[in-house]
Design a protein around this nucleic acid. Structure first.
Lengths: 350, 350
DNA sequence: GTGAAAGCGCTAACAG
DNA sequence: CTGTTAGCGCTTTCAC
């Protein structure tokens, strides 16, 4: 069986409405956009014609005139991971409520791809950008910014730049985790992270771990940290293997902090398979509070990044900028909170 | 501090290029679109001008003429859940490779919202739709289809309709699960699902469970199935509670099949807390193979829906239709496979 | 092989 | 209060 596309139906235009209602084109436009006062009589005629012909304005044509399409783009590395998709979910909700359309640009964590996509999207019809790419490629953002196209950077620190940013304070949050574990009597706090020099988030969290130790007068012990380039975000065995190797070396922290929940999952399994009871023998604390952290056994205690909130805040900021509203804060810091579940307990004596 | 938006930069237009290259506008257009032969001399002049002025065609203007924007929309209930976002991930990849832009329309599982979004998107500038909404609202899809706008339905059965669809055979897949458990000696196979009359997928999987029983000459026992409207997709406690109540009634299957992996997570926990060893005492089998099923303890044996593949197939089909290619199959059935992990074992004797 | 000009559907400036 | 008209940037006839 074959199927081939019939040609697209011709839509009714504003001209048809003007004809049908026996008024000028501009009057129709004015009724639709409420741009000028129109007598209720003519207004009614127009509205009836619109209903009769089932007319909808062509937003392409409108966009050509107004240079705005009420469309915003978000540049994101990957939508399939729970973290990103939840943030996007928040953005989507705001965009929709404020009657904007959202376009997705996935970079697959690839800088070249990021540039390619940005350029495509830059080809005219985007009203604004949210840059949520995981990379610290200041250049690309600056390019958009310098073109006077509204842009907000999400979850990346642009330092002293003028570009509006929404960030979680990863350093402070990590410190907070260390504080928390310290309060539970832990003095040998391990850290698990993967290496990704270009991702600030990963770096900052590690910095937070270090400064957290210092703050609590804990000495940094390199044997307590596992930095592995092999661990992956989408499965657990790589982490599991890395952790098993790590544990073989014999120096076992009384508590682990991981740079992301995902790594806590592999860690949990590895620990259990080595005969440790969680949290009786070893405490485990994650970071992100992704959905799955409420599925683990034991339930994972973790630092919550308010993902949806990140999305809504960033989107609201962007749309405010697009609409020319006055912006009070150009740098918004999103609060994080610890979600206490079952994987952290008091350190064993001695 | 305040910040308000400067006005948008004026982009260079085809006119500027024509001027710069000292040729006609149409020649520039013909060079860009390869629509007519142009001498290599003039071509070069044009290309140089384009490079010099960093020109990019305005696709809005182009869209106004050609009535195509190389933009496709996908209507989806929720992007924050792992299942949907992975499917979308596949779509995105294909769209990008074939140089289309993807627009997201989230319905939040709300029929009214679905209609609203569809109408907005219908307002001109979408070349095609993928309907992946979870609902069986034939009406809306048909409306698009009848407007001769390319559309493909994903993961929903439209029966005898002419509308192109991509589906996984949920009935067959569920039967397959029952077969699998049967082969492991299970004769008391339980089923856990939530009630959602309007979602075919849920219904079909249940039907598959029933026909699977019949096929294997197993008698249906209502006491072995848990149908709960209270269970939620995004957390595990609701399922946990429902299962604990269910178990209290005393009739324990030797194996459970769940309509979705998520429910297997709560089930696993409830079972363990009741003192059952998995899979020694009770086997558990999920459905979907979401990422987290490789994180559970024990690792979850489950029926895999090839999520990314669903996305790529649907998107390729849609783009083929848009581009007027001949379509061999209007109804594509996506294969499912069982992922054997650790949560299913042979039934205990007696 | 190239150029001139019409027109896609809309908004906005100008006229009345 | 309403109508006329220019023009957004592009593709596409039609002319040469």
């Amino acid at each position: 069986m074959t199927y081939s596309r019939k040609k697209k139906a011709v839509n009714v235009s504003i001209k048809d409405i003007a004809q049908e209602a026996d008024v000028a084109i501009s009057t129709v436009s004015n009724v639709i956009n409420k741009t000028r006062f129109v007598t209720s009589d003519t207004k009614e005629k127009v509205i009836n014609a619109i209903k009769k012909l089932d007319y909808r304005p062509n937003i392409i044509a409108r966009g050509l005139r107004t240079r705005s399409t009420r469309t915003v783009a978000v540049i994101v590395p990957d939508i399939s991971s729970s973290f990103f998709s939840q943030v996007i979910n928040g953005m989507e909700e705001i965009a929709r409520n404020r009657k904007y359309t959202l376009i997705l640009g996935c970079t697959s964590f690839d800088l070249g791809e990021e540039e390619r996509i940005t350029n495509i999207l830059l080809d005219s019809f985007i009203d604004g950008f949210i840059y949520f790419s995981g990379f610290d490629n200041y250049k690309l953002i600056k390019k958009i910014y310098d073109k006077n196209i509204p842009v907000v950077a999400l979850d990346k620190d642009l330092g002293e730049s003028d570009i509006p940013t929404v960030v979680t304070d990863n350093i402070a949050a990590s410190e907070c985790c260390v504080d928390y574990l310290y309060k539970f009597g832990h003095r040998k706090i391990g850290y698990i992270t993967f290496t990704y020099d270009k991702q600030t988030t990963v770096k900052k969290r590690y910095e937070g771990y270090l400064s957290g130790l210092k703050k609590n007068n804990l000495k940094f012990d390199p044997d307590l940290v596992l930095i592995s380039p092999e661990m992956r975000l989408h499965e657990t065995t790589s982490t599991y293997d890395a952790v098993r190797n790590f544990l073989k070396k014999g120096k076992i922290p009384t508590a682990f902090l991981t740079v992301a929940d995902v790594f806590a999952f592999g860690l949990l399994r590895a620990l259990k398979d080595e005969g440790f009871k969680i949290p009786r023998d070893v405490s485990v604390m994650g970071f992100d509070n992704i959905i799955f952290s409420q599925f683990t056994d034991p339930l994972l205690t973790t630092m919550k990044q308010p993902k949806k909130l990140m999305g809504t805040i960033a989107m609201n900021l962007l749309l405010d900028i697009i609409e020319g509203k006055e912006i009070k804060e150009k740098k918004i810091i999103i609060p994080t909170t610890i979600i206490e579940r079952e994987s952290v307990a008091f350190a064993k004596e001695g």
